[in-house]
Computed example of a mutant assay.
Amino acid sequence: MRAPAHPRPTRRRGPNGLSVGLAVAALTAAAASTVGLAASAAEPLPNVNLILNGAFDSYPWIWTCDSNVRSSSIPHDHYVSGRPTAESNARCSQRVRVLPNSSYLLYATVRGPFAFVGVSGPAGESASTWSSESSWNTLTTRVTTGPDTTELTVYFHGWYEQASYDVRWVSFTGPGYEPHPCGEPTSPSPTATDGPASPTPSATCWRTYIP
């Protein structure tokens, strides 16, 4: 007597018509993809130098300077000199894009009495340091941005009615995007008799520089 045939097993299907096994696999893959995207989004940006023309040797000039700041006319030795007066501390500044809740390091090579460098921000961010050495030396200071801060001002200057100061190099490093200047040169490089040139902003470039 032949044994009764076993009924053929049927594959269970989910409410959308997919088999349960395929549905579970699809959900697992989607979850893994979501986790991967979240991990990518959380990756920190690399540290970059956010200052443009920190060596004072290129265009656009970018820096906003008082009229008593001049660029060196010595070939292959680029720096700026500030000559403070009773009314002006011979200041230059540059606004940079930053990220909230992030730490940044300001570095500068200076010489001369009372050479100040610093950074300030809209949420009360403030850090500065100074030197009175007659030879080239390095100044550094660090600042941390607030939860809503996306822009800081980096500056340097001398002191009222004091001797001239020089600045050869400025960098401001921390997490962010590599900056790209706006505009093209409109005049020759500043010399001992010419003030710093102003950039001509372009609507097609990423506006790291904010006039």
Rank of each mutant, 00 (worst) to 15 (best):
Y177G: 03
V48I: 11
P190A: 05
H78T: 08
P175Y: 04
G183N: 09
L18G: 03
R142C: 05
L45M: 12
P175A: 07
G82S: 05
V24M: 12
Y155T: 01
Y165F: 15
S120L: 12
G124E: 11
G174H: 01
V170P: 00
L22M: 09
E184M: 10
H76L: 12
G174M: 00
T28L: 13
R70H: 08
V143R: 03
P44V: 08
V154L: 06
G176C: 04
V143F: 03
P15E: 08
Y155G: 01
P196A: 10
T140Y: 04
H180G: 09
P199A: 06
Y209Q: 14
R97S: 07
D194A: 06
S81Q: 10
D57T: 08
F156D: 01
S187C: 04
M1W: 10
S93N: 13
T173D: 13
A3S: 11
T129H: 03
H76E: 07
L18W: 12
D66G: 07
Y177D: 11
W136D: 05
L106Y: 01
N89W: 08
S81E: 11
G118D: 08
S102H: 03
T173C: 10
T186L: 12
P188E: 06
R13D: 01
A39F: 09
I210P: 01
S126R: 15
G36P: 00
T193I: 12
P9I: 09
G54T: 07
G54W: 05
D166A: 05
T141M: 06
D77V: 00
N53F: 10
T193V: 13
V154W: 06
D57V: 02
Y165L: 09
P175R: 08
F114T: 12
A115F: 00
G124R: 11
V69S: 04
A29Q: 14
E151G: 04
V154G: 05
A42Q: 11
P60K: 14
P7C: 07
G54F: 03
W130G: 06
H6N: 11
G195Q: 10
A29E: 14
T191R: 02
A5N: 07
P211E: 11
W206Q: 14
A29C: 06
G21H: 13
A42M: 11
F172I: 00
T129E: 04
S40T: 14
Q162M: 14
P44L: 10
W206G: 12
T145G: 01
S81L: 02
P46E: 07
S171P: 04
W61I: 06
N89D: 14
C205A: 15
A23G: 12
R142P: 01
L152Q: 02
P46L: 10
T149M: 01
A203P: 02
F114Y: 13
T140C: 04
G146I: 05
V110K: 04
S81D: 00
S102G: 13
S40N: 06
Q162N: 12
W169Y: 10
S19G: 11
P75H: 01
P201M: 08
F114A: 10
S40Y: 13
R111S: 11
L52P: 00
Y155H: 10
A30G: 04
A31G: 13
P84Y: 03
G14F: 11
T204A: 15
